[in-house]
Amino acid sequence: MTAIFAGAAELKRRLPHRHPMLLLDRVVEVEPGARLIARKAVTCNEPWYDRLADDAAERDHDYPAVLLVESCCQAAGLLATWDDPVPDARGDRVMLFGGISGVRFTGRVRPGDVVEHQVRLTRSFADTVIFEGRSAVGDETVMEIEQLVIAFRPGSGLATAAPATADRA
């Protein structure tokens, strides 16, 4: 049984994301300020499969590539804030997905796979942190990310940009 640095409950204390967009299940390794490894298990009950026709083919059950990216971004977000968590999306300091480049999808992910994201902090500035990432199922690499940029901005910036309806949605 590998060490668990953060299970589901701890993840919810550290990330604002909830079902169906809390896309990590467990942190199995962390070296604050340097690197982190987190896992996401993919099952037949992912909500996105709900809209598939009953006779959908195996290939139609490929886990959405952009959600692999989101899952890896959440791992980077955890590493960026390990010692100073940002659990509320509307706090005084919010974490934003600034940008990403050099992403390669090199393998498919299907129900039954457990994806392991390895993220490494490559450079940090005052309000911006830059990572690289590699995601694998077993020892097969399924995604590589050359550069992922996460920015921290004052909370007011995001909330005020929201039209009034956002809160009542």
């Binding site: 994301h17 909830r18 079902h19 952009v66 990216v69 509307r90 997905f97």
Partner: peptide, 15 residues
């Protein structure tokens, strides 16, 4: 995605 991104504060994710 909105119920979980984020509860009470829907923002369309970058991905």
């Amino acid at each position: 995605v909105f119920p979980g991104h984020y509860p009470g504060f829907p923002i369309f994710p970058g991905v």
